[in-house]
Design a protein around this nucleic acid. Structure first.
Lengths: 225, 225
DNA sequence: CGGCATATAGGGGCCAACCCCTATTCAGAC
DNA sequence: GTCTGAATAGGGGTTGGCCCCTATATGCCG
């Protein structure tokens, strides 16, 4: 893919940001291009449909900014970021991510990204992030900042699992569709104790019923779907 | 690229297509809006971030076209399509899908969609699809056509879905941790009707509570874990 | 030592979930 | 024309889920 357009139009101040965008969805790329080029001082000088092309183009074209999707073929956005930052340090990188991929935030920053924006966010957040990068500042959405703080705090305090072993056992059994009574029998506990563990687990995870616990258990690999 | 700019050709007839777009990613919505509004005869009159809002807006605003992402909260694009086509048949629907979601193509057409475009495709395909719909023609990308043929050949005697469309909608919402009351509001039904659909679905599937329904919904791809 | 987290257990209360029924409307099938 | 399935809605009931409290025993950490 990797379409390159010649930069023809310059604004009065002459400072047009040269941007590379990378996403494996053509329609998303086009949308991003339109969005960015609606700003008179931003120009998309290249597009890539996978991480390897993105890296190659970034190193060859030296854009001011590379906006990379996390999930791409060949190289992920994070892997591409590492290589770009190594071989072309003057190229800033913004990571664009799907809804709840905040889990990659920390890795993204370690890889050298200047910012992390969720696709679920408004377009204004993306444009703001680009302008922040232009000024040489890092950019995180409020959600990302919160996630980062949580992540760092979590590490500091020795952080194995959110849940205690007992809580995990109970959560697993809840997710396997056992009632509190059945769980109590299986674990040789009173129903009340089971309730306490389930309730504590839900509070820790910020969840409101067993249905949410099921999805958590599946994401954590505690059970199969 | 295929981004066709500045065609004033259509301005003469004065017919501007009124379009609704629905995707749970704000940035993607904005991108789509920019892309579509780069055409002088297309106007995005509404945006929705979930299937239920998309349905309500389509029925209220009666756009010429609704462009819906497959994966959305509350109602999938397919479920929303079904309801829109029932209650506002003059609203055409284009389904926009992630790369390997060709599996939903057949269902999309059954639900009444006029076209099916993969996000991996170029923007030109989307614009072409919109224009085809404008002319009242169906639109499938070559990839989609191939998938459809394979689907029809492969099936023949057709494996019916166990659950009715309505039951599937309810199951999806249950799995998203909505209460019966919330589901009733989202689907504009009474709580009793929701209970009946959930109960019927559970009986058909041999399940005993909503926890088991969650795992079913995840296995079926109705929701993400 | 004293404080803190974990694991255990109970009381009491509210409401959602789930069950059994019946009933109407409508569209298709036969 | 009748019959069946789907979708709609309600009555009435039991039980389980989830919440608020309190309380005790244990072990660890600074």
């Amino acid at each position: 893919m990797a379409t390159i357009l010649a930069p023809d139009s310059r604004e009065a101040d002459g400072r047009v940001m040269r941007i590379l965008i990378a996403d494996d969805h053509g329609i998303v790329r086009s949308g991003l291009r339109m969005l960015l080029e609606s700003q008179s001082d931003m120009e998309v000088i290249a597009e890539a449909a996978n991480g390897a092309d993105a890296r190659d183009l970034a190193i060859r074209e030296r854009p001011d900014l590379a906006i990379l999707d996390v999930k791409m073929p060949k190289l992920t956005g994070l892997q591409a970021t590492r290589e770009i930052r190594e071989q072309a340090p003057e190229v800033a990188v913004l990571i664009l991510s799907m809804h709840d991929d905040e889990r990659y935030l920390f890795e993204a920053l370690k890889a050298g990204a200047s910012g992390y924006v969720l696709k679920a966010q408004a377009d204004s957040d993306l444009l703001e992030a680009v302008r922040a990068v232009e000024r040489g500042e890092p950019f995180l959405t409020p959600e990302a900042q919160r996630a980062l703080i949580k992540d760092v705090l979590g590490q500091g305090s020795g952080r194995e699992e959110e849940l205690t072993p007992r809580e995990q056992e109970v959560v697993k059994l809840v997710a396997e569709a056992h009632t509190n009574k059945e769980i109590a029998e299986i674990l040789h506990l009173s129903e009340k104790t089971v309730e306490n563990h389930r309730s504590n687990a839900m509070r820790k995870l910020g969840m409101r019923d067993r249905v949410e616990l099921v999805r958590y258990a599946i994401r954590k690999g505690l059970i199969e779907p």
